[in-house]
Design a binder for these strands. Sequence first.
DNA 1: TATTGTTATACTCTATAACTATA
DNA 2: TATAGTTATAGAGTATAACAATA
Lengths: 164, 164
Amino acid sequence: MHGTNGTGGRLRGRNGLAAAGPINFGPLAYWVGFNLRMAQEAAFQAFSRRSQEIGESPGRFATLTLIARNPGISQTELSQANGRDKSSLTPVVEDLVRRGLIERKRMDSDRRTYRLNLTPAGKKVLTTMTRCARRHERNLDHLIGARDRKRFIQILKKIAAGIE
Amino acid sequence: MHGTNGTGGRLRGRNGLAAAGPINFGPLAYWVGFNLRMAQEAAFQAFSRRSQEIGESPGRFATLTLIARNPGISQTELSQANGRDKSSLTPVVEDLVRRGLIERKRMDSDRRTYRLNLTPAGKKVLTTMTRCARRHERNLDHLIGARDRKRFIQILKKIAAGIE
DNA sequence: TATTGTTATACTCTATAACTATA
DNA sequence: TATAGTTATAGAGTATAACAATA
């Protein structure tokens, strides 16, 4: 982990050069915000690498899962569930349609709206990605420990829902 | 928080339209990776807003703190401490020098290397940002609870250090 | 008038590779 | 040859605003 060396002020050689020793992270070392960011970046990159091995990305995984679990969801609903603007979703949906993983159908009752659904190919890709995600989760679970897992997720949910 | 509705499969009206009900997040709802991302994004955005009020950004805060705690640090060391490529640091350093918050001095012993230090103006800005960050931290602490805080940070550090 | 989705556009952050100047 | 830092460039992911079609 990121070592800190106590009181601050960094080891220096006799001529004022910064020594090649451990970095002093100061208050960053024990602040939640910084550690949250470091953990998330590390976990995200690990999952990114796994996803790339099967030619996908973490974002695609979330999108496909949300469509699978909410068949017929509209693009506006989907972008809201993701916490992103609807315009950000357009190229993603375009890509998934082009690759035959989802299909778009206009609603009969409101012809402005599209309904999104997975194709059989999309379901297959999602199954593969889910397996990949489960391996990643097992890895995380191992680091967290069974005893603390539930509480840990509870706290994360509280932060996501309650900050500011 | 993100409600899930049990077994999956989304409520629908009688003609197959997706109902405007709650979104089903499926396994995302209880997976660490997803909740970590949601919590980090929420916390980061909250801190971003606070930082903007004083005309700074979260990234600048980390950079200034690292320079303050490691006087004379080189750009390569700094980028490594941040987990970023050194080329990403060039525009950041440029900006901080231009605004008079840090100073760069070439080393005498190795004239390829710059040593970075805060100026008095930089120290003042860092003090303001640190106050701002402390308020943000208090907010997070409140959500986490004093009893779980230490363990929570421990777990985050384990994830940052140990994943993959 | 309001809403769904698209387009045009731009911004932030990041990385890779090639470069320079030093070592 | 190797290293510190810069430059050129590109990519991912995101947002805002204006727009067309539909309500």
